[in-house]
């Protein structure tokens, strides 16, 4: 098992290298760069023609090494990340990328984790119910709700929930993850409860589509498993229906869902972008969006690299869990 994990970790290095090259190419791909974006801004403000502005930009370009050949730029960038954990500076915010997004990444991670727990805690029991009560009224109702959940865009859900917060719950602050008075305060019990009172909205918004999908997958998988011969064998032993379903059905039906964890992690990161903007969350998503708009290349690059790492680590965790759950999987 240790060997399996070590080998998988080693395999991640070349994959990570490829991801970094592709990320770099992507952030370089749009015509122009960060400075030409700023130039365009100055142009709009009628400041063009001011020689000093152009010269200033030229100086900045030289300072950031934007005139160097691409591969030099790439190795300077990746070298900083690997050797010093330095993702470069953000042009827009004029500060270190890590400094800028460090706390936001933590928040994003907390939100992602909460969303996954919510998704699984809601979806799996419903999936089991739907499979064991196929075509019952309950099953059909959950199917309907599930499809609505899958189909509704999450920004719309976010707006509806914020509206409900204001009108029904008469909340004093809407959006974000904390009330204004707690922002910047050290963590305390009161702050934690304030966090909980805010976090459910983004969790529901981000998790709804995933929940609906997991319900459908769980239902389908379990129905397949319950049709298998060994379920009849288990019943023929005199086991109660709940033992048959849980020990022999769910135990096998859940495996394909475990492999979804790997795909879900980066999905939640990007899925949270729209919801993050609408809800004004201090998460990574909205900043990433702005970075792409303003061609803030090192900031955007950091996000791409991080999503790649999320994906790889998610897959690793899923594989370890699967290997642990299913004896038929070989480590070597």
């Amino acid at each position: 098992m240790i060997h399996f994990i070590l080998r998988r970790l080693l395999n991640m290095i070349p994959t990570m290298f490829i991801i970094s090259v592709v990320s770099f190419v992507i952030i370089q791909a749009p015509p122009g760069d960060m400075l030409s974006y700023r130039l365009a801004h100055l142009e709009e403000q009628g400041a063009l023609g001011s020689v000093s502005a152009v010269e200033q930009l030229e100086a900045l370009r030289e300072q950031y090494g934007l005139n160097d050949p691409l591969h030099v730029q790439y190795f300077r960038w990746i070298g900083g990340i690997v050797l010093r954990g330095d993702f470069g500076d953000s042009f827009t915010y004029e500060m270190g990328v890590m400094e800028l997004i460090g706390e936001r990444i933590g928040m994003t991670f907390a939100l992602t984790l909460a969303t996954m727990i919510f998704t699984w805690a809601v979806a799996i029991p419903i999936g089991i119910y739907s499979a064991t009560h196929k075509y019952s009224i309950g099953d059909n109702a959950f199917t309907l709700i599930g499809f609505i959940g899958l189909a509704s865009p999450n920004f719309l859900l976010a707006l509806i929930l914020m509206y409900a917060q204001v009108t029904v719950f008469e909340a004093s602050s809407v959006g974000g993850l904390l009330s204004p008075e707690f922002i910047g305060e050290p963590w305390s019990v009161a702050k934690f409860f304030n966090f909980l009172s805010h976090v459910w909205v983004p969790v529901v918004v981000i998790g709804t589509a995933g929940t609906a999908a997991v319900i459908r997958i769980m239902r389908g998988n379990l129905l397949d498993v319950l049709d298998q011969q060994h379920i009849q064998t288990a019943r023929s032993k005199g086991l109660s229906e709940s033992v048959v379903v849980n020990k022999y059905g769910v135990r096998i039906a859940i495996n394909p869902l475990v492999s979804r964890i790997g795909l879900e992690l980066p999905n939640l990161l990007s899925g949270a972008v729209v919801a993050g903007i609408v809800l004004g969350l201090p998460t990574a998503g909205p900043i990433f969006y702005n970075a792409l708009i303003s061609q803030d290349m090192y900031l955007a690059g950091a996000f791409l690299i991080l999503s790649g790492m999320f994906l790889l680590f998610g897959n690793l965790i899923a594989d370890i869990l699967l290997a642990w759950l299913d004896p038929r999987i070989r480590y070597d």
């Binding site: 229906e241 135990r251 096998i252």
Partner: peptide, 28 residues
């Protein structure tokens, strides 16, 4: 699904099936 038949199944009346490849749970 009741108690009476469950006490008989596996205890008084046992059953073996045609497909030995699939009649045991693969993960236990």
């Amino acid at each position: 699904k009741g108690r009476v038949i469950r006490r008989i199944r596996g205890n008084e009346i046992a059953m073996i099936f045609q497909e030995p490849m699939t009649s045991l749970s693969p993960v236990h």
